[in-house]
């Protein structure tokens, strides 16, 4: 069999079907009605404007980190330290709000400062992983993982130490910021902030253009596909790796700033909420193609939000979304592997 686009789609669809099947088996094993469970997830994600707006709230940081990760994947790096980069973004944004919040500057300026600080924080943390790799010979996966733990510890120390609530420190985070410093939301109760949605969409659009159309993106691709040849072609390799780390960290930092300014309005211990790891899964699922990032991230966000009500309605754990997401990624990757074994490469031009 030849490898054609239609067969490729067939493999993707097959992977989705298999993932649903496995999840169904898990549900049956847990003595839960599978159809009702799936229906509940859909209901939970799109049943009302309220829940759908929550899906968008989850979509924003997920799309931001996925955008960043597409750059590091393009240059051939596994930026697993993305979680820590989100956390540092949150910490830096919080710091900016604390410092400038009461300075008398207009809230808009302060919020912009907070976002810039978040970018700087995420970027620095990512470059630390990059420096460890470039100058210390530490694989970015190990370095990133280590830095994730450090970032978490730093976050908790801040919440329970220097930035603790007056009187008593709490797992619920720092004292909420003054309402003036909250990102504007569509309704006072909602967490959905239109500017953040615009930022996320802009991020993926920028990344898409960067990879598709710019010299920089082409050089990243070349380094990712063959660093040695890229170097001989005249591309400074480690500088490009470092740049992609910095940019990825920047997007992660924005995600952290969004969580702090628009969603929680304070710094909380689990500020990254696992969006970094989820973003890695989205990037793998879309085979590192920026064009599919937005819909797939939306799908993952919907699964996360939709499964929240499973414990209430069906007495199922909400981790079902994780099961579905995980199996989906596994089957899609498996599909790639099987496809490469079964289908022949396109014919050689001789």
């Amino acid at each position: 069999m030849r490898d054609t686009p239609s067969r490729r789609v067939l493999f993707q669809v097959g992977a989705v079907v298999l993932a649903l099947l496995v999840t169904t088996v898990v549900l049956i094993a847990a003595k839960a009605p599978p159809l009702a469970a799936f229906a509940n997830i859909v209901q939970g994600a799109f049943g009302s404007w309220d829940v759908t707006s929550n899906v968008l709230v989850a979509w924003v940081p997920l799309l931001l980190v996925t955008s960043g990760l597409l750059l590091t994947f393009t240059v051939g790096l596994w930026n697993i330290g993305i979680e820590g980069q989100i956390i540092l973004g949150g910490i830096f944004a919080t710091w900016a709000l604390r410092v400038y919040g009461s300075s008398g500057m207009s809230p808009t300026v302060v919020l912009i400062l907070a976002f810039v600080a978040g970018m700087v924080g995420g970027s620095l943390w990512a470059m630390l992983a990059g420096a460890l790799k470039t100058f210390g010979g530490v694989n970015e996966i190990f370095g990133g993982l280590g830095l994730n733990f450090v970032a978490t510890a730093l976050n908790i120390w801040l919440i329970f130490g220097p930035w603790k609530r007056p009187g008593v420190a709490s797992m619920s985070g720092t004292l909420p910021f003054d309402q003036r410093l909250w990102m504007p939301t569509v309704t006072p109760q909602s967490m959905l902030s239109v500017p953040t949605v615009i930022i996320a969409v802009a991020a993926i659009a920028i990344v898409y253009l960067m990879i598709q159309g710019t010299y920089f993106g082409l050089r990243l691709k070349a380094v990712g596909k063959n660093a040695k040849a890229a170097y001989i072609l005249g591309i400074p390799t480690w500088q490009h790796m470092m740049a992609s780390f910095a940019l990825c960290g920047l997007f992660a930092g924005v995600a952290g700033a969004v969580q702090v300014t628009a969603v929680y309005h304070r710094l909380i211990p689990s500020i990254s909420s696992g969006y970094g790891y989820l973003g890695l899964m989205v990037a793998m699922l879309i085979n590192y193609k920026a064009a599919f990032a937005a819909p797939v991230a939306l799908f993952f966000a919907a699964l996360n939000v939709g499964s929240i009500q499973l414990p209430i309605v069906l007495r199922l754990d909400s981790s079902l979304a994780g099961v579905l997401q995980g199996t989906l990624v596994l089957f899609v990757l498996l599909g790639h592997g099987v496809r490469q074994r079964v289908l022949k490469k396109p014919q050689v031009v001789s």
């Binding site: 010299y215 082409l218 070349a222 596909k225 063959n226 001989i232 072609l233 005249g234």
Partner: peptide, 24 residues
């Protein structure tokens, strides 16, 4: 070492010429 599998001939020429500018 010499070529980058996965990139087209055009992309190779673009890279080797080291042209400046933002967009290709």
């Amino acid at each position: 070492q010499g070529l980058v599998p996965g990139l087209t001939l055009t992309e190779h020429f673009v890279l080797s010429e080291g042209l400046g500018g933002l967009f290709v």
